[in-house]
Structures are given as C-alpha cells and as structure tokens.
Design a binder for these strands. Sequence first.
DNA 1: AGGTAATCGAGACGGTACGTCTTGTCTTAAT
DNA 2: ATTAAGACAAGACGTACCGTCTCGATTACCT
Lengths: 197, 197, 197, 197
Amino acid sequence: MDDGSGQRRVGRPRDASVDEAILVATADLLVEVGFTGLTVDAVAARAGVGKATIYRRWEGKEQLVLDALTASRLHPEVPDTGSLRSDLLAYYLPLTEADAQAGAIRLMPALAAQAALDEDLAERLRAFVSDRRTPVAEVIERARARGEVDPAMDVELAIDLLTGPIMYRLYFSGSPVDPATVETLVDRVVRAIGPGA
Amino acid sequence: MDDGSGQRRVGRPRDASVDEAILVATADLLVEVGFTGLTVDAVAARAGVGKATIYRRWEGKEQLVLDALTASRLHPEVPDTGSLRSDLLAYYLPLTEADAQAGAIRLMPALAAQAALDEDLAERLRAFVSDRRTPVAEVIERARARGEVDPAMDVELAIDLLTGPIMYRLYFSGSPVDPATVETLVDRVVRAIGPGA
Amino acid sequence: MDDGSGQRRVGRPRDASVDEAILVATADLLVEVGFTGLTVDAVAARAGVGKATIYRRWEGKEQLVLDALTASRLHPEVPDTGSLRSDLLAYYLPLTEADAQAGAIRLMPALAAQAALDEDLAERLRAFVSDRRTPVAEVIERARARGEVDPAMDVELAIDLLTGPIMYRLYFSGSPVDPATVETLVDRVVRAIGPGA
Amino acid sequence: MDDGSGQRRVGRPRDASVDEAILVATADLLVEVGFTGLTVDAVAARAGVGKATIYRRWEGKEQLVLDALTASRLHPEVPDTGSLRSDLLAYYLPLTEADAQAGAIRLMPALAAQAALDEDLAERLRAFVSDRRTPVAEVIERARARGEVDPAMDVELAIDLLTGPIMYRLYFSGSPVDPATVETLVDRVVRAIGPGA
DNA sequence: AGGTAATCGAGACGGTACGTCTTGTCTTAAT
DNA sequence: ATTAAGACAAGACGTACCGTCTCGATTACCT
C-alpha cells in the first residue's frame, strides 16, 4: 500500500528543517544585502548548510529567492468593509508604508529580469503574482454583486488598473506612493470600473 | 588654444566613432543574450575595443545599457488625431506588436533591480522614463484644453493609469498585451479622467 | 558462547560476499581510472553497495586500495632453478611484460604519497612491500648457502639493489624495463653481492 | 623588427614578479602542508594573486608544484675528489640528512602518481629527474676515463643502481637511509660496475 | 516466538577544493 | 592622452568528492 503521493522514497529522506533554515537565511540576507548582494555561499554559511544541499533543492539563486518570498508571504486578509472604495483602500494603503516598500516587493524587478531568461522561473513568478491578486479579485466580485461595478468589466484589467500604477511608480518612475496618491488612484479606478453611465 | 567648453585637452582626443561602436555592440548583444547574459568583455570584443575604453566612458554595465537604450530610442511622435481616445490609441497600440515587446522594453526590470542599489543609475532611469512620458503628457494636456479631461486630474497619475497596467502585465503577471486589451484600457482610463460627473 | 576471537558479536553479521564485491569493484576501477580518478561513490555504485558499508570496513580510499591490491596478489612462487642468476631472472623477468607494468604496480606511487601523511597506511604499505620481498630473500639465502653470495652481504640491501632500479625506472625516470635491461641488472648485482674477491 | 622569440606580443605583458611570488608561495606551502594539503586557493592568497592568474600559467596543481620544485632546485655541484668511491659518497651522503629527506624529495611519489594519468606531466617529471642525474653521469664517465669503470657499463643503469635503492627505501620499504647504508651501497655498486674480472 | 542489535542499500548531509567566469583596474606599445 | 589587447586581484559560481548520518528493511543471535 502506498501513500497518496505515489512517491516511493529510498535513502535518507530530506530534512525539512534544512529547507526552513535555508529559506530563513535567504530571507534574512535579502533584507541585509539585497538580491544582487546575496551569495549562495553566504546563505549556506548562515543556514549552517553545505552548498550542495542548496543546489539539491533549487536550481539557482532566483528560484531560491522566489521560494523565500513565497514562504514568507503573509496572505493578506480579504478586506470586507462594505464598500468597494474602502475595501480597496484597506488593501492598498498599507503599501504606502516604508516597511512594505523596503521589503519583498523591492525584489520583484530582479526576479522579473531573470524570468525573461528562464521560463520555469517566469511560471513561478506568475503564480506568485497571481496569488497576491486573488484578494482584490474577491473584493471586486463582491462589489459587482452589490452593483458597484460594471457587469462587463474584466476583473483582471481592473486589478491591473490598481496594482499597475503602484508598481510602476515604485520601480520605474520613482514617483512617491503615498496615502494621498493611493486615495486618488482608488477614486479614479472606482469611477472607471463603475456601472456604465 | 582652448575650445569653448573651458575644457583643457591634452593628448589624443577621444574617438567619437568608438562610442557609437560600443553602443551598437551593446544593443545587439542585449537582444541576443539579455541583460544578465551581457558581459563587458563581450561588448568590447564585439565592438573591437579595449575594456578600458568602455570604462573610461561609462561607470559600469548598467549605465552603458541605459545609454544604449537611450541612444536607440525612437522618440515617438506626439500623435494629434483630434480626440483623447484616438491619440492614446495611436500612442499605445504599437506596444502590442511583438517587436516592441521583445525589444528594449524587456530590459527595464533588470535596470530597475540595479537602480535599487545605485542612486545614480536610478536618477538616469527616472530621466529615461520621464522622457518617454512627455508625449502622453502633451496629449492629455491638449485634451484638457478641449475639455475632455477633468481639470483637477493630475497628469502624472493619468499617465501611470495607462502605462502602469501595460508594464505590469508585460513584466509580472504575464497577461497578454494585445490591441483589444489596450483599447479597453484606454476606454476605461478616458472615463476615469474625464470631466467630473 | 563465544568464538575463539574473543569478539562478542550481536546483530546481523557482516556479509562476506560484500567484501568481495567491494574489492573486485575497486580493482576493476583502479585499472580503468587510476588511483586519483577512483572515487568511493563509484566503488559503491559498481559494487551495488552503500557507502557506509565501505567505510564500516575500511578507513578510507587508501586502505581500500591497498587491500584490493593485497587480495589480488599472485603470491609469486619462489623460484628454485639451481643458480642465483637464473633464480633472479625467473623472478624479475615477468616484470618486463606490459601487463605487469600496467597493473597494480602502477599504483604504488599514489599509495606512497598518501603514506607520507598517514602512518597507519605507511605501516600497511611496508607490510605489503615486505611481503613481496620474501621470495627474493629466500633465493638469496639459498644462494648464500651454496657459497654464491658474500656471507657479509646484507640481504635487504641486496634486494634493494634489484628492486630499486626497476621501480625507479618504472616510476620516475621513464627508462624502459625490458628483458635485456633486467638481465644486465641481474648480472651486475650478482657480481656486486658475490663472495669477496 | 622582431625579437628572437618570434612571438609578437600585444596587450599587457605577464608580470614576471607574479610568477616568482606564486612559485615561492607554492614552495613555502609545500613544506608546511605537503602536496595533498596544498590548495590553489591558499597559494593564491599567500602570493597575493587571483586564482585565474595561476590557472593562466599552469594547468593545475601538479604542474605548478613541479615548476616550484624545478625553480628551487639547487643544481648540485659535480664532486671531483679523485676517486669514484669518494665522488659518489660526496654526492649521495647528503641525502642521508633529515632535511634532505623531508624536503622536495618527499613530493616525488605524488608527482609520479599524477604522471601516470598525464603524459605532459610525465614528460616534465622525466626532465626533472634527468636533470638531477647529470652530475652522477659525469662522475662515472670521469671514472671510466681513469679506468675505474667497466668500458661496457651502461651509465644509465649504473645511476639506477645507486639512486634506485635509495629512492625505493625512502618511498616504499621504509628502511633507513643512513650513512652506513649509503657507504655499503656505494661499495657494492663500485664493485658491480668496475672493470670486468 | 519475540526482542535486540548490527547489518544492508540508498542517498542526504556539512564541509571544502576545484576550475571557470566576470568585474573593474592597470600596464604595455602604438597612435 | 588615447587606443586595442590582455594581465591583474577579488571573489561568486556550480560541481565533485569526502566521510558521516539517517532511513526503512533485513538477518542473525539471545532469551
């Protein structure tokens, strides 16, 4: 009889606490030295692990970092405040805090750059991004049920209208992402996706 | 004898054709191997140039790439078709072509990643981005003069509402950027920034 | 109840066929890839054995190789042809065959190199070498009894005079070790160790 | 106009002082940690040199060590004391000192082991060995001119009769190489290669 | 018969050296 | 002073091997 995984394992099984140690070391080092400054040797040393143990689990630095991010993700709660506008503000305003902008979100361009050369990484990156979008989709669908959103509006594009400008500012234009900006953005998007005139 | 720049020059003057050769080699290689795969040695070899010659002119790979991008830019003409909607479509629809998406635009995440560690590069990146935004700003201001845009609307945010979602899709979510999407996007943004109800 | 060895044994006894398989795999691989190219992983894989099983029996690669050599040794018969000269030729001429020179004898320098760092290995190496010298000692002693050898001659040095030049040629000088050379060598040594003038 | 080497050199020439520094560091480390304990990283660090600089000049550790030995060789003076016996003692007795046996000579087995896998190294090793044999050859030829050596005696084999037993003892049999032994050895070899009875 | 304990194949583990690669600087002779 | 060529120091990369360890399964001995 077999377990559900269908995976017959011989030999010494991988030590799950090692995965944990590596991911923690990676996350810590990312904060300290950034993506480019991160070396696999440093991760191995910090985690008290051999380099081979890292390369046995991940193909390279990018996959490792992506996993470190994924593992440390705080699945944001889906806000439910009663109105589309306040739900969206509840979701997006925390992004204006310095902490949020200094954290994991900073690493996205490096991953996107690498993803251009590595379809596997690109796939994982898309999954990661998609994961973060789910709460917003839920908020919008709920609003649509209440009649606050144009029935014809594509949810994906609606999310892009919110997240896109914020990321664009953070990464490329350097314009500030502050509460006032987010509020204006949300107001404009609420108008854009509301029921047709 | 001195030139007007007040710059005292001794010895052999720099060969301007060398700058050109380096930038062309850089641009070619970027297309072939991407940003991460680009090495300064390869650029030097391709350009038939010593590495010192490159480092005498640029501070590093990132600045070089940024200049290669800037040099090869097609300063897009500011469209003037009579309406905000058709002006914006004239500007953004070309981005849906495969060529455009495979080209220089692909390199932005790598530059953004590096810019996080290098304020000088960040400054140059912002300038580059700002440069590309000017035509859209002009289109929007013209529309505002015609009464098509809310007088209170912040132009910068308006541009972010258009460019942000497109870049976000290209780099992170992997969703397609096709003519239908761009058209829907433009329609929604036109509604969002139109004169208040 | 105890066996005569005074060794109290509990648990599953060691499988003797496993020793054999490991030694055979080692000997085969030595011929194929040489001492430096030999890895314990490869021995384990070839023998169909876990690495721990090897390390349970030997302290390391060198001991293993030395045992593989010892196990595969063809204890050369002590020649007895009636004269010192023909006895010595009977013993040393086989060494001029390509097979002999390509085989185990080739591995001696690697073991000697390692022995310089490992007194235990050095001891085993000396025992191995001494083992091979015994037949020659017997030949010489027999000759001495017949009056063919100087009573004052040290047997050990006599053997060194024969084996030393041959090994030196094989390992270091690269000079050929052919039948003519061996014959001349034996003739000279017979003269050197013969009864004093 | 070209120099005699016929080698047209462009680019920065190799820095000869770097070769020196690397060889000195190698020689020092060999004494401290032995051949097996020697790492290329350690040589680079000690020499204040990048690893690539080492690999640009040598193919690996063995070639480097061999060059370090060759460079540091003290071309032993050819003794000329008037008799074959005393010339040979003048040459070989110094080998009985602990210093001599602990030094470069200790590394020969490791090199010989590697030479079995690398024809280029084997060639260099033979040249090194041959170089050390020259003085003895000269001593023997001079003795032959004086009538102390059998005109038919092959000089190479004569040298093997002296050096072979000494090396064999040092590397394999572990028997001592002390002044008394060397004296006996020389006496016996002098008898072996003297003019025919 | 059941318990105990060392064995087995498999392979993960920490550590460490390898040889390659890239970066940005420096050195040469020639222009 | 600049150029092309390429050597240089520094240090990260990903691979390989060593000798140890852990796992589940086996195989004897000893109650």
